[in-house]
Design a protein around this nucleic acid. Sequence first.
DNA 1: CTTTTCTGATACTCCAAGTATCTGATATCG
DNA 2: CGATATCAGATACTTGGAGTATCAGAAAAG
Lengths: 192, 192
Amino acid sequence: MSSNPPPRGRRPDPAVDAKIRSAVLDLLLQRGLEVTMDEVAAHAGVGRASVFRRYATKRDMLLDALAQLLDIQVAIPDTGSLAGDLRQVIVDTLAIWRDDRLAALSRQILGESGRDPVVADLVRTSMRNRMARTWPVYDRAIERGELRPDSDLWLLTDLFAGLVAYRGLLSLDLPDPDEIIRSLLYGFAATG
Amino acid sequence: MSSNPPPRGRRPDPAVDAKIRSAVLDLLLQRGLEVTMDEVAAHAGVGRASVFRRYATKRDMLLDALAQLLDIQVAIPDTGSLAGDLRQVIVDTLAIWRDDRLAALSRQILGESGRDPVVADLVRTSMRNRMARTWPVYDRAIERGELRPDSDLWLLTDLFAGLVAYRGLLSLDLPDPDEIIRSLLYGFAATG
DNA sequence: CTTTTCTGATACTCCAAGTATCTGATATCG
DNA sequence: CGATATCAGATACTTGGAGTATCAGAAAAG
């Protein structure tokens, strides 16, 4: 479209931007979502007004931080077998929940999804993207004849993600990777 | 132990107890967890102080209401086949998430579990109890030779509960009961 | 009849989010 | 250059809701 009218007065200081964002991420990992704006300003070494100049509300600030946190990328395995690939995905995911700080933060973020549809949207999209990036694993497995070609891959991945989210959210013991793999691949029915 | 010293002055009015509890449940279903103490008192037609005389904090009040909500019981099916029993459990559970009010409330309660360990404990215990009551279904299935006798039943039930909780929390489309059954019983591996 | 604890009503404190203002710094425009 | 606009930090204000305190009147006990 048309180029914006040239900005007039003093420009926002990028250093202040950076100090605030990094302070928010810092405090988020230290104390979770329950952080006051004064804490953020103080921890950033910045005026309180400068925080509100960048984010109209605390929620906006947290949403920005959340978006940063959620787009961390995951490695896509290629071990040669579906079970091996799955095992690596599962172990990587479980690692998050074994770290106390990250587990607590994950719980809070998942929890916030239950109250704020915008947060739910962020989490949903981020999970969807992350899973879609693992499609190659399943494509290869289908080519190798290890996976039913008509598999509902969203169901497969959500069964796993749901299990982990559910147990993590409620602080239940995390499942054993090999048992998950066995269940997802072969199910619970008695074999003939 | 020793009987309590006899109570002295005016006794708490049971009618007031009832009015408050019913008002809380009412408002909980109408507007979720974000209810003010004044609203509760007003909706109950009762003095604000009477609410605080019964619950030291809003959290205590909500925990009490939550405990009531969570111990609703579920029917245990016995259709003659594991698939049939599972189908009924699954359909019953999905019904909760198809009701907009109940789904919203479930989301908020699950969400609160991520921030308050005591809520998480309530939810965890209630889910555990509910699932344990369905053990007969699986016992019968093992006797009939439909289910592997060494099955981790907690894993089986949590795979399902997790899937539904995960999708419900993030407002994803709910899965089809028959697809869930097929996946849980036979898995995703290519047959042979 | 005295004492205790309930009842509803009202007023208060406290905390954190968000708003408003002020002075000074830094930018553009004419 | 000077006028003007917006940023920076500081500080004071408003608002809303949780929790506290106090009151006068009612209902229970000794």
